[in-house]
Amino acid sequence: MICLSQFALGRAPPMAKPSVFRAEHPMALDLSPNPISHGAASSSRRRDLVFVVNPRGASGRTGKEWKKLLPYLRSRLSVDCNICESLTSGPSHAIDITREAIKEGADAVIAVGGDGTLHEVVNGFFSAGKLVTNHNRESAHSTALGLIPLGTGSDFARTFGWRNDPYEAVERIAKGVRSWVDVGVINGETGEPHYFINVADLHLSAKAGYYASRYKRFGNLCYVIGALQAFMGHRNQDLRVKVSSCLYIFV
């Protein structure tokens, strides 16, 4: 699992109505500190894990694969963990679920789906330009981010060298190993921030991704269709990028 390290901040959109979790056991509110380490998590208490599932992801395949995975997940995690399942009902719902889970003291929020679901969960870690925190202000506990890749694309998993295997993902969660990852933020013209942990695209690549999102029903073929559509009528544009005090010009 992953701990987020923020390197840019902005103003986040207001919270929507809190979500409701389906939990096999009540979420524990008395959470002890869980320091970041490269070893297994402490077994002195049960961990509260919230799984944010996009059942409509990958044209419905995510929901079907999640149902198949759930018995194995319970067999591996239910002894030491409280398993809370929350299904998203539409765009941005995962953001609200994540914020509520963190405030209630979840040990980890695990995105179940593709890069789109992961993106929303990451944005749920922030509100009003700050990291969302546990309601218990005296707790040193922090919430980690997890991923079970069950979506159309799993580029983030490949970046970490993980196979696109949900069963391996469950094993990583069972071990409770944490590591750091940086978080970037883009502020649009309205000043509304969008956080990301994988990649931020500009121009042609961004257009290809935008068009691909329209054809998710075709599975991985959507990326080919999106790229072809982006190339049609494409015109190069000069870019001026300033990083710290250095100015880069791309033509």
Rank of each mutant, 00 (worst) to 15 (best):
M1H: 14
L4G: 09
S5T: 13
S5Y: 09
A8H: 10
G10L: 11
M15D: 15
S19I: 03
S19T: 08
V20P: 05
A23L: 02
E24S: 08
H25L: 13
H25D: 07
P26N: 02
M27L: 05
M27I: 01
L29H: 14
P35W: 02
S37H: 12
H38K: 02
G39N: 13
A41P: 00
S44T: 08
S44F: 03
S44K: 07
R45K: 04
R46E: 00
R46M: 00
L49H: 04
P55V: 06
G57L: 04
S59C: 05
R61N: 01
E65N: 13
K67P: 10
P71H: 15
P71D: 12
Y72I: 12
R74K: 14
R74I: 04
S75Q: 14
R76D: 03
R76L: 07
L77V: 15
D80S: 12
N82C: 14
I83F: 14
C84R: 04
E85W: 03
S86W: 01
S86T: 09
A94E: 13
I95H: 05
I97T: 06
I97E: 05
I97Q: 11
R99Y: 03
R99P: 06
E100M: 02
I102V: 08
A106R: 04
A108E: 02
G113D: 02
G116I: 03
G116N: 06
T117Y: 10
L118V: 11
E120V: 13
N123V: 01
S127N: 10
L131F: 15
V132T: 10
V132C: 09
T133N: 00
N134R: 04
N136W: 10
R137C: 13
S139N: 01
H141R: 07
S142K: 15
L147W: 05
L147E: 01
L147M: 04
I148W: 10
I148S: 04
P149K: 07
P149W: 06
G151A: 06
G153N: 01
G153V: 07
S154N: 00
S154A: 05
F156N: 02
F156T: 01
A157T: 07
R158Q: 14
R158T: 14
F160I: 02
N164E: 07
P166G: 12
E168R: 13
V170F: 02
E171I: 15
E171V: 12
G176T: 00
V177L: 11
V177D: 07
R178F: 14
R178H: 10
S179V: 00
V181H: 07
V181W: 04
V183M: 08
N187Y: 08
T190P: 06
P193T: 03
Y195E: 06
I197M: 15
V199R: 09
D201H: 06
L202E: 13
H203K: 08
K207I: 06
A208D: 04
G209W: 13
Y210M: 04
Y211P: 12
S213Q: 06
R214W: 00
Y215G: 03
R217T: 03
F218R: 11
F218M: 09
Y223H: 14
G226T: 08
L228W: 15
Q229E: 12
Q229H: 12
G233Q: 08
H234G: 01
R235T: 07
N236Y: 05
N236T: 05
N236V: 01
V241F: 11
V241C: 09
S245P: 10
S245Y: 05
I249D: 15
V251A: 04
